[in-house]
Computed example of a mutant assay.
Amino acid sequence: MAGGRLVSMKDVARHAEVSVGTVSNVLNRPEIVSPDRRDRVEAAIAELGYVRNDAARQLKLGQSRTVGAIVLDSGNPFYSQLVGGIEAAAEDSQLMVIAGSTGHREQRERLYLSLFEEQRVRGILLASTGGTGPLVEAIRGRGTPVVLVESDPDERGSSVSVDDIAGGEIAVQHLASLGRRRIGVVAARQDLRQVADRLRGARRAAETAGIELEVLDAEDLTVLAGRTVGEAVVARPRAERPDAVFCVNDLLAVGMLQAFAFRHQVAVPEEIALVGYDDIAFARSTVVPLTSVSQPSELMGRTALALLEEQIARPEAAPRHVSFAPELVERESTTG
C-alpha cells in the first residue's frame, strides 16, 4: 500500500526509475529486460508490496484464467469428487475454479450461470437441473463456452456423462443373478435425467429377468430420505419386504443401511441385498461395505475441463461427447 491506497505500476516505475513499459515487461516478458533493470523493478515491487491486478489484465486481453463449475449438490460426495477432478486439472493448467451448488434448484442454477457470465469466466462446466437450456444457449451465443456434465448431449457444446441406463441395468442384473426376485428401487427426483435413466435401466433388466420392480419413492436424494424409506420397509411384515433394493445413489443406500442396522432388525445381505450408485469414497467403509455402481467422478471432472479447453482452442471444431461406461463394484452388501 502507498499512503493507504493500492500500489500501481506507475508507483513501481517511479520507485525503480524506469518506464511503466519496463515494469510491464518484467511482469510479463522478463527475458527481454536487462538484468540491472529487472533487479531494480523486482526490488521496487517487493519494497512497495505491489500486487498485479490480474483480473483487469485478463479482462483486457479477453483471456480469463477462471473456470466456473456448477453442480447439483455439493453435499453429495460424488460432486465433491467431480469438482476435485476439475480442480486437479485446473491446477495443472494454472487455472482457478469457482464452484457453486444449486441444491437441485433451477432458479439458483440460473443465478450462477448469469453471475459467471458477468464475471467473464473462461468457461462454465454445468451439471444441470435440466431446465436452463435456452439460457445456456444464449450464454454460448455471447461467447462463453459451456460444457455439460452428467447431462444429455446437445449439438452446440461438448459434454461428459455416464451411461446411466446401463448403470441401472447392471445393478438389477446383479441382484437377479443372486436369485433375488422381490426387488425394490429407491428413487427421488425422477425429473432429473440421471435418475430417470437409472430407473429405465433397472426396469429393462427386471423385464429381461421376469421380475416386477417396486419403486419406493423417497423425498430427496439424501441419507435421511433413505433412512425414512428404510424404516418403512422395516415396518412391513417380513413376507412383504423386498429381498433386494437398488438405490439410485449411495446416500439413499447409506440411509437404508442405517435403518436396517438399527437394533439389527434386518440382516444385510442375508435378508435384503443392497446396491447403491456412484461408489462414493465412504461406500467401502459403511457398517456393511456397500456394493455400488461406480462412476469415474474425478476422471469426469478432468475430462470436462479438457473438453472446455478444446472448445476454447478450436471454437470452430465440432463438439465432443464423452460417455463413460459404469462398473459394478461388489462388496459385502450383496455378496455377504
Rank of each mutant, 00 (worst) to 15 (best):
R120I: 13
N53V: 06
P237Q: 10
A90T: 12
L252K: 06
R302D: 04
G143Q: 09
L251Y: 03
T144I: 09
L95V: 10
D11V: 13
R238C: 07
A166S: 09
Q265R: 02
G75A: 12
G184W: 01
L224N: 15
K10W: 12
V185I: 11
H174A: 01
S24W: 02
Y277F: 14
A259L: 00
E332I: 03
L257V: 05
D243W: 03
F282N: 07
S74K: 13
G168F: 14
A283W: 07
G157R: 10
E91L: 14
E47Q: 12
V97C: 07
V195T: 14
D92I: 04
S159D: 00
D39C: 01
N249A: 11
G168N: 15
Y79H: 15
D243P: 06
I124P: 01
V185T: 00
H15D: 03
A261M: 03
L328G: 03
L115D: 15
I165D: 08
Y50F: 12
G49F: 08
R236I: 04
L299Y: 04
R227K: 12
G100W: 14
L61H: 08
L27K: 00
V172W: 09
S80R: 13
D164G: 11
Q295E: 08
D163Q: 07
F282E: 05
G3N: 12
P77V: 06
H321Q: 14
A166G: 06
N76W: 06
L148F: 13
G123V: 04
T66V: 11
A205L: 14
R14F: 13
A99G: 07
R110Y: 14
R122V: 04
R193E: 11
T334N: 03
G210W: 15
E310H: 09
